[in-house]
Design a binder for these strands. Structure first.
Lengths: 201, 201
DNA sequence: ATTGAAAATGAACATTGTTCAATATATTTT
DNA sequence: AAAATATATTGAACAATGTTCATTTTCAAT
């Protein structure tokens, strides 16, 4: 068989990614099976491997689209210029997304490429986009001459929030407060600290 | 066969965990195979299942011992009473451990129990021990009447550091500064923020 | 109609974790 | 000492996994 022409290569790609997303949303990342994806889209297993290199590749693209979706919910809010307020709203959007798409978000940090396989540039690029959102929010706290510090602190905030959702959604290692409250406290305290060190310089 | 009496049940348990650790240290968590463990200790696969419920159970115990080891390197340094200095040294020990045992530490957050399987209490207990270390370090910043805040901020610091090592060791999502530097900046900034809010109360 | 190219197939393979009836050994009882 | 009992150990067998690729089918061009 070939060129069933039911779908173009691009449509097929969409079908696969949509099906994968639905499976993960329902069963979790661990429940994702090549045969299940194929069954769901009405093709056979071999077809998956015409479109994606392997499951790792497929998951990277699925996770890439998750990052895209997260970016969309974060980028459409306009900044007020008050870092704490803006970060709060940002964190609010971020956590609302990671919680309402908990299993999908889980896949982002549950999946890991084999060590010998580098993260694709297009994926790192998506992460940079999210970092840039944070940078814009805390930019008012930094002098224009110090883009390095801006960069560094944005990373720290990103990593901290990441650790928060990672630990929360896996359910392991921590219980108690919601990450929403913890994130607010983190932001408030950290930005306070930033203001202080800004005074000292 | 039975009771080869080469090893007691307890010795066997040690053999298995040691072998597992060595495999993970060399091949990474993904490289851990039941058959390999059995081969390495000179027993067959079935024996593993006499000692541990399944691989999940085995890994939980291996990770538990990793937390123990981390606790040991963190708990033996005596506090000066200066939160920033103490946290710095704590983070130093923490990161030195997670970096020199990168693959072992990776296993701690790469492994995830199935959703329907609760984290054992003895494991959560080990995490609490580590949290308590952080709490002791920042305790001077809090009034005795507010153990709640102490608890919360310790958690936030823990989660932030966790996110840092998680992102660093997986190699994904971030590149650039070493986590050692980032951790120092995080601690300095965060504790500055804590001092500020302490003044306000 | 015929041909050529490419998409789709699915049987086959190597590995995986896990089970459990069979077996071998140590201990207890006779 | 021998027989009986209990149990530790075994490893073949199973179901499920991701992946490959020769084969087959279809479409588009000739």
């Amino acid at each position: 068989m070939a060129r069933r022409s039911d779908h173009t290569r691009e449509e097929l790609r969409r079908l696969v990614l949509d099906a994968s997303r639905k499976i993960v949303e329902k069963e979790g990342f661990r429940g994702l099976r090549a045969r299940q994806i194929a069954r769901d889209i009405g093709y056979t297993i071999g077809t998956l491997y015409n479109i994606f290199e392997d499951l790792d590749d497929l998951v990277m693209h699925m996770n890439g689209e998750t990052l895209d979706a997260l970016y969309d919910t974060c980028s459409d809010l306009e900044l007020t210029g008050d870092p704490i307020a803006d970060l709060d709203r940002l964190a609010h959007n971020y956590l609302e997304f990671t919680q309402s798409h908990a299993k999908l978000w889980n896949a982002v940090f549950e999946h890991k490429l084999p060590e010998d396989r580098p993260v694709p540039d297009w994926f790192s690029e998506k992460v940079s986009m999210l970092l840039a959102v944070i940078e814009r929010a805390i930019a008012p706290l930094f002098a224009k001459e110090d883009p390095e510090a801006l960069h560094q602190h944005a990373r720290i905030l990103w990593m901290s929030l990441f650790g928060m959702t990672s630990l929360e959604s896996t359910g392991r290692l921590l219980e108690g407060e919601t990450s929403m409250i913890l994130a607010r406290t983190l932001i408030r305290t950290y930005v306070d600290g930033l203001k202080l060190s800004a005074q000292n310089t």
